[in-house]
Design a protein around this nucleic acid. Structure first.
Lengths: 110, 110
DNA sequence: CCCAGTACTTGGCAATGCAAGGTATCATCA
DNA sequence: TGATGATACCTTGCATTGCCAAGTACTGGG
């Protein structure tokens, strides 16, 4: 992995949680859904990254899930935001907005 | 540290290198300068984070430095960007812009 | 009954910010 | 002259967290 790729994944790291919660806020979703959405947005993530993250968010009380049968394979875990998750997402919104502003200040200073 | 603070520092993490290189690009600077600038931009960073990072960037050939005497204390290490550092910073610019766009896509999808 | 497709899980690794503590230099002032 | 405080630089150990790779389990078709 070269430096640029490293920097990119480092940047991605910071916003993954935020993006995943945002995606789930809009629609209940199971892991493969989420992976697809992230891929559409060009935020590549692999299974081994996503599943543990979903579990962590659930353990933190930000997500819950229900099982749903599938016609094409094993049942799926559909994740949704808890009330706490909604609140947390709002804070992340703020944090992200502020960060973008802070970076802009830094990179444009004379 | 609560969840929000954790998330904030996680987000910050990804852009620190970028911000520091940007600051140095604009003016040669020594560590305390950089800390002040980051603070102005509301990107709080502590010494123990900055020094190892500067050393790493130097070892990667992105920064160089010269010693300069000070009238008020020990000599200072003034850091500047190498050519390679300039190139790398351009790539980070692109990476950051793309990330902001990707996050926007994710958080606004219906 | 095996195989391919879909989902979910787990263990070890590497990167990196952070907290806390340490060393060195210089000016001031009793 | 030697104690003090401010400035500056550096190091160590820790915790978090994404990544990679391999593994388990359920389903339907040939």
């Amino acid at each position: 992995m070269n430096n640029t790729e490293k920097a990119r994944s480092q940047m991605r790291k910071g916003v993954l949680e935020y993006c995943i919660l945002s995606i789930i806020k809009n629609n209940e979703a199971y892991a493969s859904d989420i992976l697809d959405r992230l891929k559409e947005a060009e935020l590549i993530v692999v299974e081994g990254t996503l599943y543990p993250l979903l579990t962590r968010l659930k353990n933190d009380g930000l997500l819950n899930y229900r099982w749903e049968e599938s016609t094409s394979g094993p049942p799926r875990k559909y994740y949704g935001l808890t009330d706490e998750g909604q609140d947390f997402l709002k804070e992340l919104d703020t944090a992200w907005t502020e960060l973008v502003a802070a970076v802009a200040r830094t990179t444009s200073s004379k």
